[in-house]
């Protein structure tokens, strides 16, 4: 039946071509430029290339030898992992909980969404005040309950705390994002299925395990892909809170490191190479995720 409706491919092009045209012109064309640039020597964003690199694959060698790129990679992988576990995980729990209550669903939906409404750079400034060494919210709080001496505040941005201080706000901000997507997905699940299961005597947990999660699979897979690509691109919040890999080059992420190379250090060709690495990594990881979560066709 499906095949019958959608066998004629004529309309297909009408549906796909406008979007593809947009992406080709504004994303793939610049990306191809990136690939070309990665072999050239360019020292300022507005400039023409000064020549081909010696050897032409110089940047790709550098990519694997650059210790700061190693730091960025390590942190980004950690970011992806934490994003999946905490952002999607917490969002799923919250979505299931909200789906199970009667009063205040509207309130919670709106409330969870708040952090996304505020731009990440504004949030970064706010968290700077929260984690401030001298008179920040957390240190003030700890001093008030006498867990900390007034003259010995904790530096939340030093080497031993920096990563946690960076990851917590990033994870926190986007929980609402996945929450909204998952909540929309949950609403799409037919109520009759639950009722039938209830009549059959299934407990709440069984219903979640046997109906909700399997039916949510497509949505979850979408979330996973979004989480991976999102984590690879995270930029604003870390940049505002930890500019230039501060402290001591420990907080680089692929996104911030690429920005540093292109806009601060003027190594345009190397930054193009990092951009390619980001894209390749994203495609490989999200493909792997889709494979694992193999989508079910209905």
């Amino acid at each position: 039946m499906n095949a019958m409706i959608y066998r004629k491919k004529g309309a297909l092009f009408l549906f796909l071509i406008p979007s593809l045209l947009f992406m080709a012109v504004f994303l793939y064309y610049p990306f191809v430029m990136n690939v070309i640039n990665s072999f050239l020597h360019i020292t300022a964003l507005g400039d023409k290339a000064l020549g081909v690199n010696q050897p032409w694959y110089e940047n790709y060698v550098k990519l694997f030898q650059d210790p700061l790129m190693g730091v960025a990679m390590k942190n980004t992988f950690l970011m992806i992992l934490l994003t999946i576990v905490f952002q999607v995980g917490i969002a799923l729990v919250l979505a299931l909980l909200v789906d199970n209550i009667r009063f205040g669903t509207q309130f919670f939906r709106t409330a969870f969404f708040f952090p996304i409404v505020i731009s990440a750079s504004a949030l970064g400034l706010m968290f700077n005040l929260v984690f401030l060494y001298d008179g920040g919210m957390i240190n003030q709080l700890l001093q008030a309950i006498h867990l900390q001496q007034a003259d010995l505040p904790i530096d939340w941005k030093d080497k031993s705390h920096a990563l946690a201080t960076m990851f917590i706000p990033v994870c926190w901000q986007y929980v609402g994002f996945y929450f909204v997507i998952l909540a929309t997905g949950l609403n799409n699940i037919s109520q009759e299925l639950y009722e039938a299961a209830e009549i059959d005597g299934a407990t709440k947990m069984q219903r979640i395990g046997c109906i909700t999660l399997p039916l949510l699979r497509n949505t979850l897979c979408t979330c996973l892909v979004l989480a991976i690509t999102g984590a690879l691109k995270v930029f604003d919040l870390p940049w505002v809170m930890f500019p230039s890999g501060m402290p001591m080059d420990t907080t680089w992420l692929t996104g911030t490191y690429m920005y540093q190379q292109a806009w601060k250090l003027g190594d345009v060709d190397y930054s193009s190479t990092i951009a390619i690495a980001i894209v390749v990594l994203g495609v490989v990881l999200s493909q792997a995720a889709s494979r694992i979560f193999k989508e079910k066709e209905y």
């Binding site: 700077n128 401030l132 060494y133 001298d134 530096d155 030093d158 920096a162 501060m246 402290p247």
Partner: peptide, 21 residues
């Protein structure tokens, strides 16, 4: 220098002056 001079921003250290610290 401030204890956190390697993990803080210029804006924050300016503030130390403004706050008489």
């Amino acid at each position: 220098f401030p204890k956190n001079t390697n993990s803080t921003t210029d804006a924050d250290t300016n503030n130390l002056m403004a706050k008489n610290k």
